[in-house]
């Protein structure tokens, strides 16, 4: 293990990201009705992806989901775990198309690409991958599984698009290098 600094930091980032994911999954929802919540947890792989790349983001999606189930006791459903893994991989791919949050680089062009990828990624992960695994593992009617998946895709996409973009722009502004500050 040569480049130890980066490896340890990545491991810690994935661990902290997963812990954030688990906390938000269990406690950080935006409630719509009494028992239905929009979760903000998927913002975490987005941000981890922006800082550390898609693979750490995917791990946050997978391990974070595992931890969320572990502290919440919801049972482990691997059809959803795989969906999470892929979804996090997609939405965490920001540095592949030039986003550099640490240098304050996130613009409208990035926001559009991110939004498209986020919706597509969600559709593929929860609209195809998860129902596919659900069908294999638990059987059931593909039509209904797909229909249920669409609800998840839609609500997830909305949160990721709105919250994700707001947070990404805000973080980029925070990290932007500041020159020529004058007291007025």
């Amino acid at each position: 293990m040569k480049n130890n600094k980066n490896i340890t930091q990545q491991i810690v980032a994935i661990a902290i990201g997963s812990a954030l994911f688990a906390v938000l999954m269990n406690y950080g929802g935006i409630s719509i009705y009494t028992n239905t919540k929009l979760t903000t947890a998927y913002i975490i792989p987005v941000i981890i992806g922006a800082f550390f790349g898609p693979i750490p983001a995917a791990l946050v999606g997978f391990i974070g989901n595992f931890l969320a189930d572990t502290i919440g006791g919801w049972g482990y459903w691997f059809d959803w775990s795989f969906g999470n893994l892929f979804c996090a991989l997609f939405i965490g791919s920001l540095n592949l198309y030039g986003v550099r949050i640490r240098e304050g680089i996130y613009n409208i062009k990035h926001a559009i690409i991110f939004s498209i990828i986020a919706v597509l990624g969600n559709a593929v992960s929860f609209g195809l991958i998860t129902p596919f695994f659900t069908k294999i593992i638990h059987g059931g009617e593909l039509v209904i599984t797909l229909a249920q998946a669409q609800v998840a895709v839609l609500s997830n996409s909305v949160v990721i698009l709105i919250v994700g973009n707001i947070v990404l722009f805000a973080l980029a502004r925070r990290y932007k290098k500041q020159n020529n500050l004058v007291e007025e």
């Binding site: 340890t8 929009l38 709105i162 919250v163 707001i166 973080l171």
Partner: peptide
């Protein structure tokens, strides 16, 4: 939804501050 972003931003910044420290402590 907007209100939730106001919680997320400081939460992310405070948590990310930790990453470097924990990594140092481990190294």
């Amino acid at each position: 939804i907007i209100a939730n972003t106001k919680i997320l931003i400081p939460l992310l910044l405070v948590s990310f501050e930790r990453i470097e420290l924990i990594a140092s402590a481990m190294d």
